[in-house]
């Protein structure tokens, strides 16, 4: 029972880490960044590079943030900016960007599977059951991320501008808020978070040019049921991630793999606003 419970919590934490960047972009820009998966892959390879260069595995995380941020910023400037009024086209264009990222990675590295050195190995004993230390650290990381993002949104003036853009972009622009800047910063931050998430999950999954795709769908479904609230995302991660762990445990991982997508589709059919309370 204890391992299942711990799996449930750590899975929720991982899903939260993976989805928060996508949620930020969706909340502010009202568009779905389908390059999120590609950016995660990029972050994964940042961790691989850190290992290859013999650096501390922890360095892989800021390295991923820098890669993701730079790529995200240029994508926003060159492509995404012209698609603000075409949300469905933005999904396709960012998917295309994801293909481009994947192919460049394939050209630089190769098609094969790579491994990154995990920052921490080993297990610690929780109530007499050994459990992966790294997974437990991810819980702390998810909490830190949630608190950090919330504080950034509440405590900084750019955060205030961002919240204004989320609520009513036209009004915000009318009040002199530079919504273009808010969008740029948000997309860059969202992309950076995607890459960090990619680096963080490398100890749990192999690194290959398609590693981000499976995560993209889960993150996408979680964001849809959460609207634009970080709080709803936490609830959604726990409920849907929990369901995934339970289904995987009792009905096999294959059915577990479709739990989030299927459940989210049903939830949205019954309650279009999902877990957000507005």
């Amino acid at each position: 029972m204890v391992p299942v419970l711990l799996d449930l919590i750590t899975t929720a934490a991982i899903l939260y880490i993976v989805s928060s960047g996508l949620l930020l972009v969706f909340g502010v820009m009202k568009l779905i960044n389908f390059a999120h998966g590609g950016l995660m892959t990029l972050g994964g390879y940042a961790a691989v590079m850190a290992t290859a260069m013999g650096l501390s595995p922890w360095i892989g995380i800021p390295l991923a943030a820098i890669f993701g941020g730079i790529v995200g910023l240029s994508m926003e400037r060159v492509v995404v900016r012209s698609l603000y009024n075409r949300p469905l086209d933005a999904i396709l264009a960012t998917w295309g960007l994801s293909i481009i990222i994947g192919q460049i990675i394939t050209l630089v590295f190769d098609r094969g599977v790579h491994f990154a050195e995990p920052p921490i190995r080993g297990v610690i004993s929780i109530l007499g059951e050994p459990y992966s230390t790294y997974r437990l650290i991810l819980i702390a990381f998810a909490l830190l991320l949630g608190v950090g993002l919330t504080l950034a949104l509440r405590g900084t003036s750019l955060g205030l501008s961002t919240r204004a853009v989320i609520m009513n972009e036209d009004l915000a622009r009318g009040l002199g808020i530079n919504s273009g800047l808010v969008r740029s910063v948000t997309f860059t931050l969202g992309s950076g978070l995607a890459a960090v998430a990619g680096a963080l999950i490398t100890p749990l999954s192999s690194v290959d040019p398609n590693m981000g795709i499976a995560w993209l769908i889960s993150a996408f479904m979680l964001v849809l049921v959460s609207g634009s609230s970080l709080y709803s995302l936490a609830v959604a991660s726990i409920v849907l991630g929990g369901a995934q762990v339970v289904v995987s445990n009792y009905f096999g991982s294959v059915l577990g793999g479709m739990t989030i997508a299927a459940l989210a589709a049903v939830i949205l059919r019954i309650r279009p606003q999902g877990f957000s309370y507005e």
């Binding site: 779905i32 949300p87 469905l88 999904i91 769908i217 996408f220 479904m221 849809l224 096999g252 294959v254 059915l255 793999g257 479709m258 997508a261 299927a262 989210a264 589709a265 949205l268 059919r269 279009p272």
Partner: peptide, 25 residues
């Protein structure tokens, strides 16, 4: 009545994922 265009796309996205998993299973 009331379903959004995005929601319809989401459902068509979930379908291939479920079918693939069923084929695996």
């Amino acid at each position: 009545h009331g379903a959004s265009a995005l929601y319809a796309s989401v459902i068509t996205l979930v379908l291939p994922i479920i079918v693939t998993q069923l084929l695996f299973s």
